[in-house]
Computed example of a mutant assay.
Amino acid sequence: MDEIKITIGKEKYRTEVHINQHNLIADEPVEVGGTDLGPKPTSILLSALGTCKAMTMRMYADQKQWPLDAVEIILSSEVVKSTQQQTTYIRCTVKLFGDLDEVQKERIFKVGDKCPVQKILSNPVIIESNMLQ
């Protein structure tokens, strides 16, 4: 299991992300008070979805020994608020490269929707926060 540790100091809004032996910086754009030293948290969330979909497609094509040369995924999100709820629309545009027939392309595309991150985001999520003393 991954150990993920997030730390933020007084530097607005530069945040260190430590995932096992990997480190990255998250931040906010200058126009909202950040220093733009890294992607904003929502972009990291979208990148988690995109990378998971791409890896799942790659694994499936490799298992089938299909000639998938590359996967390109463009993601965007939009939040729509109403008086009763907030809905987030995530759009994923997928482009598959390689000498694939239409049946192979469609199957690879559909398998991408079964990636673990999409399953998490598509089902109810309960976040339990606890404060250590």
Rank of each mutant, 00 (worst) to 15 (best):
K95W: 05
G38H: 07
A61F: 01
V94G: 01
A70F: 00
A48N: 08
P39I: 08
T56V: 02
V79K: 11
S82A: 06
E72Y: 00
G98Q: 09
E28P: 03
P29T: 02
Q86A: 13
L68C: 08
V79T: 12
G34L: 07
P39N: 11
M57L: 10
T35C: 09
I44S: 03
E28I: 02
K95R: 15
D69W: 04
G38D: 10
Q86Y: 09
T35F: 14
T56Y: 00
Q85G: 04
W66Q: 03
E31H: 08
S82Y: 07
T42S: 02
K95E: 15
T87Y: 00
S77V: 01
R91H: 14
K81Q: 15
T88D: 10
T87Q: 09
A26G: 07
E28H: 00
P67M: 03
P41G: 05
Y60H: 12
K64W: 02
L45T: 06
G98D: 12
G34D: 13
V71E: 01
G34I: 10
Q65G: 04
I74Q: 11
D27V: 01
S77A: 15
R91Y: 14
V80Y: 06
V71M: 01
A61L: 04
A48R: 10
L46S: 03
P29R: 00
K95H: 15
D62G: 09
P41H: 12
T88V: 14
Q84R: 14
T83K: 10
V94Q: 03
S43D: 12
S77P: 00
A70V: 00
G38N: 09
P29L: 04
F97Y: 15
D36T: 00
T56K: 01
S47Q: 09
A70M: 01
L68F: 04
G98A: 06
V30S: 07
D27R: 03
S47L: 14
R91T: 14
A70Q: 05
P39F: 10
V32R: 02
T88S: 07
I74M: 07
K95D: 13
P29D: 13
V32D: 02
Y89W: 03
D27F: 01
M55T: 12
R91I: 12
S76Y: 03
S47V: 09
L46E: 05
D99V: 08
R91M: 12
E31S: 13
A26Q: 10
P41D: 01
F97T: 11
L46Q: 03
S43P: 00
F97G: 11
Q86H: 11
Q85N: 14
F97N: 12
K81F: 07
A54T: 09
L46R: 02
K40H: 11
S47A: 15
P29Q: 06
D99M: 05
I90W: 09
A54Q: 05
L37W: 12
G33S: 01
K81G: 07
K64N: 06
S82Q: 05
Y89M: 04
V79F: 05
V71T: 07
E78Q: 13
